[in-house]
């Protein structure tokens, strides 16, 4: 799919401006901009993250993200190394960006 960047209202760091705008094809576009090609493993985290935000109204930093993944998807996936391979650099930031959520505060 050819990305349609002009449809995306992103902030200066690439986070979605209006959280209500998010849908899966928007996520694909943001991921393309960030150089990530989304697989089932990515989607699992993205949906978990959106559920986390919906439940607690906060984007998790690394540690709570790892704990949430471990609790919901099992200990094998609840590891920073696993999340790093899916969302290189800063998993909480990159995954929040693609999931259309606000930038997590105080991320290492």
């Amino acid at each position: 799919m050819q990305p349609k960047y002009e449809n995306l209202a992103l902030d200066e760091e690439g986070y979605l401006l209006n959280l209500e705008d998010w849908n899966e094809s928007l996520a694909e576009e943001i991921a393309t901009i960030e150089g990530v090609s989304l697989t089932q493993a990515h989607w699992e985290i993205i949906h978990l993250l959106r559920k986390f935000y919906k439940e607690f109204e906060v984007s998790p930093a690394m540690r709570p993200l790892v704990k949430a993944v471990a609790k919901k998807l099992g200990a094998d996936k609840g590891k920073s190394i696993y999340l790093m391979t899916l969302f290189p650099g800063s998993p909480p930031k990159l995954s929040a960006k693609i999931a259309g959520l606000p930038k997590p505060a105080n991320c290492l």
């Binding site: 109204e57 906060v58 540690r63 704990k67």
Partner: peptide, 14 residues
């Protein structure tokens, strides 16, 4: 923000 909602998420922050 709905601050009460966060209470259930405290476990993820130890």
């Amino acid at each position: 923000k709905h601050l009460y909602k966060l209470l259930d998420g405290l476990e993820f922050y130890d």
